[in-house]
Design a protein around this nucleic acid. Structure first.
Lengths: 257, 257
DNA sequence: GTCTATAGAGCGATAGAC
DNA sequence: GTCTATCGCTCTATAGAC
């Protein structure tokens, strides 16, 4: 168990990055494992280097103009590789789409589960779930933005999977809330609906990222605000009594002084 | 001034529709006024009829596949008009985009201002602003969805205008919160940030409309939930004492019993 | 010399505005 | 219906690493 000081550090975005070791190399490797068949490149070193270039370029163009508007020629220009070379790294545009789509979700679920395993109190679970989700989206902003914006253009098969992923994280929030209600910590009449609202706020962070950046709102700050907001509504009187300490000073305390 | 019974009715979605008289004809007329130059059709009756057909079709296709993926052929098929005929109603695809983009925003602002003029207490203002916004998006769902999803594909000039509109409604929420803080009704440390979160929740209603429909959540219900949620966080002790009665029974009361 | 990755013109097909 | 621009993708000669 970490000391209180470590907990505080742990809750910060930088500490999160250190903890999950979410290197770009790591992401690349995950994608590669899932698309071995389509990749013709043999030497791992060149693969890693160029795959990252390709992802960067593809996400940059797609997030600005849309995936459909990204041509292989434009991707070639952006990455500095020839169109012919590009096809060593994926079997077609469809395949590239698949890589870009699945990565955000897979990583989210992977790290979210890992983070959740370390806490048991519903209130703490809620905080960790919100923070982790926000931090992840911050660390992989282009991937999240891409997944959010392009999901609706997918063919039915892939779209269904994207929707399922969306609902699964929402259900995670709902489960936490329900557990808290059963334990008397939360007082929420419709956990699933509140979960939807939480998800909406989390998504706004990466969909409107430019806005928050311009206002100097850090992801730490945003996470704290969302958590305070949710707790002010969801935490029951009983829950308030025995709530774990938070940093910064919990809003509910400020209000009742 | 309406009696309490009328207030309750007034807060419902159907009553809202009756009040604002937001007929499709009305919307069409507004658009027409703004694009007189590009329209070659003379007889107002045929204009109105076909313009509505075109908007319906264009929104349906665009909201499913994206505006860029909508071809004049597909629009022709959807509307049952020849491609040649379509060009009597707009000067080009770009022009059609402009029509579709601006309408949601213009109408929102128009009706929002009108609704806000009738209330003065910040708490009531907040409720009216949230409800009105949600109800409007419900009444003009395809328009709102289109505006939200296609904004990022606009050329810089139009995009800037879309962003400005977004910020303006957000600022409306922030202004209400700030006024409430000055009056001691609200206790909010960062009104603009909270306003952003409110907007995020409002947008989720029309972006994820299919989800809420499947769960049987009505717009009335959703509005009530958002308002309760915001008030649990934002309303100060003083504000709770002298808050206007709400329907259904205010959540803050339920919690303190 | 061998194996790997690249360049980039070219092909066939199609989409898409008018 | 027509005509054009463009797109995804392939192919092969070549450059480069070891």
């Amino acid at each position: 168990m970490p000391t209180p000081g470590e907990i505080e550090d742990f809750s910060g975005f930088k500490a999160f990055l250190r903890r999950v070791n979410l290197s770009r190399r790591e992401i690349c490797r995950e994608v590669y494992e899932a698309h071995r068949g389509a990749i013709k490149i043999k030497k791992e070193k060149t693969l890693a280097k160029n795959l990252l270039r390709i992802f960067d370029g593809a996400l940059r163009i797609s997030n600005e103009k849309g995936f459909r508007a990204m041509t292989m020629r434009s991707l070639s220009r952006e990455t500095g590789m020839s169109t012919g070379a590009l096809y060593g790294y994926f079997s077609g545009k469809e395949d590239l789409l698949e890589m870009l789509m699945s990565t955000g979700q897979r990583t989210t679920w992977h790290i979210l589960r890992e983070s959740m395993a370390q806490v048991s109190h519903p209130l703490e679970k809620l905080r960790v779930a919100v923070r982790t989700h926000l931090f992840l989206s911050e660390a992989m902003l282009p991937w999240f933005y891409f997944g959010y914006m392009e999901a609706r253009h997918l063919d039915p098969r892939h779209k269904e999977r994207a929707v399922a992923g969306e609902l699964r994280t929402e259900q995670l929030f709902a489960d936490i809330l329900e557990e808290g209600v059963r334990m008397g910590i939360f007082a929420v009449s419709n956990p699933l609906l509140l979960a939807s609202l939480i998800k909406a706020m989390v998504q706004d962070w990466y969909v409107k990222r430019w806005k928050y950046a311009k206002r100097g709102i850090s992801v730490d700050r945003y996470a704290g605000q969302v958590i305070d907001f949710v707790e002010a509504y969801a935490v029951s009187l009983e829950g308030q009594m025995k709530a774990p300490r938070r940093t910064p000073v919990a809003r509910s305390e400020r209000r009742r002084k």
